Simulated assay, not measured.
Amino acid sequence: MLSNLFPKAALLLSTLLPLSPAGARAQDVYFSQPGATRLHTNPAFAGLLDDYSVTLAFRNQFPTLAGSFTTTQLAGDLRLPTRGLHHALGLVLTQDRAGEIGYTRLEISALYAYHRRLTSALALSGGLGLSYGRQRVGYDNLVFGDQLSADGTTTGPSAEPLSFVPVNYFSVNPGIVLYTGQAWLSVAAHHLNRPSLGFRTQSELPPRFSVSGGYKLFLRRPSPGPRSPSVTEISVTPTASYTRQGGSSRSEMGAYATVAPLTIGAGYRNIGAGSGVERQQVLTFTVGVGVGAFRLGYCYDAGLTALSADLGGAHELTLNLFSFDQLDSAYRRLRRRAYPVAPFPAY
């Protein structure tokens, strides 16, 4: 009945929660600004870019649907001021909502990262995230056939069996980042323990595996710190990533151009949702600017295939507050105790 009353909402559900004889398999949200939402991508990114940072991100996906799929995320990380600066902590709070069907998922993740310089130019960060999530489905916004009278008015509650007990789950999320001052490689896995989400058919949140990397070509290198006001950074950064979760996969290639404090980027994304479903193609356009201790980013996803275009793509907005001690960084660099400056785009 849901598909008869709300065909586009049913299409949204089939995209987010594809069904199979083995049960329902949910999918995680995907952000189009991985530099700004890096803690969501890999826990090993905690503490790599700033002394501390706090990021608020909002993503509105499929905006042409009534009650589109939205995600709000608050994330923060802190590099602990211990000897050697080996340790960092992070926290990520994420809420997903799918409007008309009353679907919500709230997840909180605690992160830890350990940093180690391997050579004078190469460093490694290993991270671990532990997540607690709570998922529920509500039907308060839906109207069923047995609630409609002859004149079209709504009367009484529905007799449909619509009970869904909220589900709590835990997941384990490790990752590593290998980087130099100009290149990085990120490998991460989420939900390795395959937590159950408790739908009517047996369901699970399948592991999410991701690999990403990039290379920053400096046309003008900032000095002495990564955000020196005396020298403007000018750089071009090509990036690539691949993510697989359950039966779906996505590959992406893009590039960012930075003339500090402005960054602009564009990318191409190819998304597959499994056999029998047309692959979706998306172009992404990003613009970001840094002002003082703040970074602001906006991204728009434009669908190239009929389905992704009809759903309206996505809008994404990020706001970041950060702190970085340039004098301390210069001192540590003179003492040869500093890590390479992580080169991934941030705005």
Rank of each mutant, 00 (worst) to 15 (best):
G47R: 15
R83H: 05
L65E: 11
D50E: 12
L49M: 09
L74W: 03
Y30H: 12
L74F: 07
S32Q: 09
A44Q: 12
A36T: 14
A46T: 03
T64V: 09
G90K: 13
A44G: 11
A44Y: 03
A46S: 14
T70E: 15
T70C: 06
F69S: 14
T72H: 02
H87Y: 04
T71G: 13
F45K: 09
A75I: 07
A66W: 00
L78V: 14
T82H: 07
H40I: 06
T55F: 01
Q27W: 00
L48K: 09
Q61E: 12
T70V: 13
Q27D: 05
G35A: 07
P34A: 02
G84A: 08
P81W: 00
F69E: 02
V54S: 10
V29R: 00
Y30G: 03
H86W: 00
L65S: 13
L48W: 05
G47T: 13
F69C: 03
L91P: 01
D28R: 11
L39E: 05
F31C: 05
A36M: 15
T70F: 03
A57N: 14
A36I: 06
D50I: 01
L56H: 01
N60I: 03
F58Q: 14
L49R: 15
P63R: 07
G35P: 11
V92L: 11
Q73P: 06
V54C: 08
H86S: 07
V54H: 04
L89N: 10
N42P: 15
R59F: 00
V54F: 07
T71D: 07
R59H: 04
L74N: 10
D50L: 04
V29T: 04
N42A: 12
A36D: 11
P43W: 00
A88S: 14
G84F: 04
F45R: 13
L39W: 03
F69I: 05
P63V: 02
P43F: 00
G35I: 09
A66G: 10
V29H: 01
P43A: 01
Y52K: 11
L74R: 12
L48H: 06
F31Q: 02
N42Q: 10
